[in-house]
Amino acid sequence: MAADPGIGDGRSGGLVLRGVTAGYGRSSVLHGIDLTVRPGQRVAVLGPNGAGKTTTLRVVSGLVEARTGEVTLDGGSLLGLRPDEIVRRGVAHVPQGRRVFPDFTVEENLRTAAYTRGGRDVDDDIAMVLEAFPRLRDRFGVRAGFLSGGEQQMLAIGRAVVQRPRLVLIDEMSLGLAPILIKELYSRLDVLFADVPAVIVEQNPSIALEHCGWVHVLAGGQVKASGPASEFTSQERLMQAYTGAVEGVPS
């Protein structure tokens, strides 16, 4: 396992999580997460369901409060801030299940994303989104509830573009989508968020490995393995991290 490049320079920039524990109600899901995203880096967070991937993202964006540990973005702590304050610090979170506003049109959804700027200077951003996802141009005045799952996912990513983030969190982008669409979405990410550091949570490791430089594998609420994507291309390595099993993996 390669050394985590973020350790020791938590003040220098990017996103740093240290010893984060969190949960819902009395349950605990995260048992001490250490994770770093350096400026410009795209990181995949993999792991079986229930590993705490989504919760990790929700801690960063303030939807779930961390119980212990620290979370900093470019040196400033995010702990104790409300989600809307964290958005103002430049964190865009594309949540699981898209969560587009079903009664808003595509346009209204995109304009809502400029809320923190008072809804101004949004036209260029919208143009950029429509260029990346021409299908949204055709559906511009349609209520988002009537879009297909793929279109909703495009819209959800489009909202993050309009937010002009310093850090993007994307949760389970590929869930329930056809493989060809998944490929398209990932290739657009490369363009739309070329310089923006990103944390991408995925159930489907192979596609994430293609588009991310660094990988953290979560299981049981802890980071079980970290390293460059190239280290995780073999199935054994992943399956081992997933199941904790040392035997029974096809070789």
Partner: peptide, 17 residues
């Protein structure tokens, strides 16, 4: 269990193809 964990479909479902 011993058979399922070796099946390609099963491994693929978890790891993607």
């Amino acid at each position: 269990p011993a058979v399922v964990r070796r099946q390609d479909d099963f491994v693929e479902a978890y790891l993607g193809s």
